[in-house]
């Protein structure tokens, strides 16, 4: 579903955020992206979503290059950044309809999906209010609903559990699993290692822009915990 080959990103000013990163995410798979702050996780996710231009490497989504066929690649993708800013002048329902229009979702499908996810995340009654009046958690829920209503084949989430209450976190995990069971793929970054360990089929650990470990969760964790593996890799990086 997603292939990243030799991706590198250097920001204006010379800071190299990601160096020669390659990985792939298959359909039906949840891939967790782990790393310390500034490791290059968000840079990679933004490049995959087509928001960040890059000069080196190739990123393809279902065979479509994000640089050469951006519209085709984006039409099967949903991306949510960490702390997503949504149009505050719109009401929740208007925002969801706007997203559905951009993704060519029929009136019937959107009515059914908005109704389902709105009820699931307990946001339906607030959809008539301006987004500007929402709390952080409500905005996060609305952003997630806007991602799920697209029925994406690739879901890219940057720190999706931040700001969610325990019930919504649980629901999100269930929906991510459901999406994968239906043939979709999920790529997400997180600092919550317990969630990554339990939820992800595969995990990639990034440090200073380089992928230092990548594989099945069970293989990476082994007999210890993901937290121990992560801290050990961090320690190795510091001593080098």
């Amino acid at each position: 579903m997603l292939t990243i080959s030799h991706f590198s990103k250097t920001y204006p000013g010379g800071k190299q955020a990601v160096k020669d990163l390659s990985l792939s995410v298959q359909a039906g798979e949840i891939f967790g992206f782990i790393g310390h702050n500034g490791a290059g996780k968000s840079t990679t996710l933004r490049a995959v979503a087509g928001i960040l231009p890059f000069e080196e490497g190739e990123i393809t989504i279902d065979g479509n290059s994000i640089q050469k066929q951006p519209v085709a690649a984006k039409s099967i993708t949903a991306f949510l950044p960490d702390n997503p800013d949504l149009y505050e002048f719109m009401t929740g329902i208007r925002f969801l309809n706007f997203i559905c229009d951009l993704y060519n979702i029929s009136a019937q499908d959107r009515t059914q999906r908005i109704g389902y996810y709105g009820d699931l995340f307990e946001l339906t009654s607030a959809l008539g209010n301006a987004i500007g009046s929402y709390s952080h958690g409500m905005k996060q829920k609305l952003a997630l609903i806007s991602a799920f209503v697209r029925s994406p084949r690739l879901l890219i989430l940057d720190e999706p559990f931040v700001g969610l209450d325990p019930k919504a976190s649980h629901l999100l995990k269930e929906e991510l699993k459901k999406l994968c069971q239906q043939g979709g793929a999920v790529l997400f970054s997180t600092h919550v290692l317990e969630v990554a360990e339990k939820l992800c089929d595969r995990i990639g650990i990034i440090r200073q822009g380089q992928l230092v470990a990548c594989g099945n969760t069970a293989e990476i964790v082994g007999s210890s915990s993901l937290e121990e593996v992560f801290l050990e890799l961090e320690k190795e990086g510091e001593t080098k």
Binding site: D101, I105, I114, T124, A126, G128
Partner: peptide, 17 residues
């Protein structure tokens, strides 16, 4: 705050949106 009740939604083209 207004209490929103879900009803049938309408679709529009990308340009119109």
């Amino acid at each position: 705050n207004r209490n929103f009740k879900m009803k049938a939604q309408n679709a529009a083209s990308i340009s119109m949106a």
